[in-house]
Amino acid sequence: MLSLETRIGRLVLKNPIILASGTCGYGDGYRDFFPAGQMGAVVTKGISLKPRAGNAPPRIWETAGGMLNSIGLENVGVDKFISEKLPLLRKQKARVVVNIFGERREDYAKLAERLGKEDGINALELNLSCPNVKKGGLEFGRDGRSVKQIVWAVKSRSGLPVWVKLSASRSDPAELARWAEEAGAEAVVISNTLRGMAIELEKKRPALGGITGGLSGPAIKPVALAAVYEAARAVRIPVIGCGGICSGRDALEFLLAGARAVELGTAVMANPRAPLEILRKIKDYLSGLGLQSIEQWIGTLKPE
């Protein structure tokens, strides 16, 4: 019997499939299609101290092999998240990771303090890589010292495992992963969407209301895979792969490159059955190789 259990720091996930932040609402966006509890974990929409209305539409634009989004971190804010969304999530019996976002460094610490007091949260994922907001997020995720400070503050204020979501673009992700590790993060998630743009030619205007957006989907998979491969060799903490994973084979490639779990986003929006199909494919493939545990597959990429 094959075990798909994977350990992410203090947290044991029953399988390596995680629903990525911003693609499953407050973690229960697909309750009509499958129980969130069947996933290894779910990551909520990015939560900020105050509610955010988000960016002007259009917010979605399909591109070759991918899509751009410019949601702008629309969310209900931490108070309403705790009072209205978290109770629903607890009922789903899923491992819950709350993604948090701040415009200022101290926002992360304040969010950590609030959320650290709540039951039913298994980890916090720090969004240090959103390309869709003017202030915060990505600007902290470019600089190792800021990453270290924020991780340390969140860890000490919440007592929860801290995952850091980084971008595969811009700075050297392996370098930033080292800073996160040094500050006590229990995992790094690579990657967020990559900044991109589309134009409506006839109307001579940007396709997105927010002008630029974040690219996701199969188009970014090679970029994310390279960053995951490099980061997994640079740090001892788990790396979680994210970026264009659409099939069981894609997921198996990330695991082979050293990811201990994978996050799915765009694939689920395109096909709500994707998580269960991908899980089935991983099981069949590894069982077919006669493996007893996914541990025997993770990071076993041949050197040449």
């Binding site: 911003g22 609402g25 979605i60």
Partner: peptide, 23 residues
């Protein structure tokens, strides 16, 4: 009608300007 990715409320992509502010 608005451009959307998921259709089920998961991505918050299909924003419609609301009369009371927000979407």
């Amino acid at each position: 009608e608005e451009r959307m990715a998921c259709g089920v409320g998961a991505c918050l992509g299909c924003a419609v300007p609301a009369s009371g502010g927000g979407y």
